[in-house]
Design a protein around this nucleic acid. Sequence first.
DNA 1: CCAAAAGTGTTCACGGTACACCCATGC
DNA 2: GCATGGGTGTACCGTGAACACTTTTGG
Lengths: 240, 240
Amino acid sequence: MGHSGAFCYPYARPAVTVDCVVFGLSEDRLQVLLVQRDEEPFLQHWGLPGGFVRIEEDLEESVRRELESKTRCKNIYFEQLYTFGALDRDPRGRTISIAYFALVNSASYPIDDVGGELSQSSGHKQVRWHGVDTLPQLAFDHGKLIACALERLRSKIMYRPIGFELLPSRFTLSRLQKLYEILLGRELDKRNFRKKILSMGVLDGLEAWEQNGAQRPAQLYRFNQSKYQQKLKQGDFFEV
Amino acid sequence: MGHSGAFCYPYARPAVTVDCVVFGLSEDRLQVLLVQRDEEPFLQHWGLPGGFVRIEEDLEESVRRELESKTRCKNIYFEQLYTFGALDRDPRGRTISIAYFALVNSASYPIDDVGGELSQSSGHKQVRWHGVDTLPQLAFDHGKLIACALERLRSKIMYRPIGFELLPSRFTLSRLQKLYEILLGRELDKRNFRKKILSMGVLDGLEAWEQNGAQRPAQLYRFNQSKYQQKLKQGDFFEV
DNA sequence: CCAAAAGTGTTCACGGTACACCCATGC
DNA sequence: GCATGGGTGTACCGTGAACACTTTTGG
């Protein structure tokens, strides 16, 4: 029981952190943003971006601060995942972590597919995308957090239109389908997919086409947030 | 920024609590177990059973301890709901609450439908069931927690067989149907319901019948946990 | 004219829903 | 014998799944 420091309480208190599983999409796989630790414990291991919750900030504010410092990006989609509180999850002492997961359009960030170079640095720490199937050894119980986030993401894209968050604001239906195929780990029928997605009425077809080499140009679409909100209010749900 | 107490840290730490939304089923409505507070803040207001997480106990252990002290019952079904951390949710200072929800077979407890008498007492606090549609003013943000738990429960019974947890281990199909009707707030077709529920193959029909006054006796069923686990592993899902 | 991806409709099977009558019992 | 809830089967419709060819472009 420590006597150092200016903040004292009649009972011992756990430390509280937020950790965030940030997903991004490369050409053909789902990736997670990891930070290489520059201190003990787990020195030089990779871990999730996260940190202690400051006493004067909201949980969401904490997450936003962490995300901005690691990704230099605002307005990221994120939501709370689960709270982890096992006694031994942090060797420094009892620490409870409120885990979040976030989806970013990773085209906005340098992406490193082969795993050679670092993509960005924040302070002196390395920050890098790692394919979810080729994760390194992770600090703390972060492997568990990622597994939990993956499960949630995979099931959630089936009933909520959050997949769009992984794409640029304008995208082709083929790209969207690829996204679903990567996340679900199986192929989807093109005609059925387009029929289904379009029939939900939350995508706006644009008068713009993407030229992608030597093929027929593909029409671009945009997710219409307000149409979706309206459907939600009518109890009308998204489903893939 | 206190200096009292034996537990000191270099940075201020939020207090951490668990709170549990305990659902029970009376004859014709869903109820929540509430505790009348016997201290400030919110003296005499009703609130959720819960309390501070002890430094040497798991989150689940905390919940189990709280549940046992309030309901005197072990082996209650519960799961984590959401973590609430708004800055102003506790007037005593920054407090983060990890909310859980639990389902109990309230036949095991004295139930008080009309809201007159107390059902049980733990220490000196009153503990009582309250219909979810007739809740009193609540302490802290517990109204929010209950709303959140209700939403989760209503959606979850559609895809996981947790409804059984609200019933005694042996129950009739009519009772189960009533449960779904109460939770969903709409009537269900008897034949379709029975067809659906039985076709999932997770209920065992018993050679036992319930005599319920001047009617034809109803067959009793039991939820078969292991059959369900097996189906889960096969990726075979429960759905209503 | 060839390669490569975009785009487009129909058929079939299954599951959800709607619906009405007989059964067993206690009083 | 009557009131009360228990118990059962069928027909229809809509949605999900399977499936193949034409179009547009660059090289």
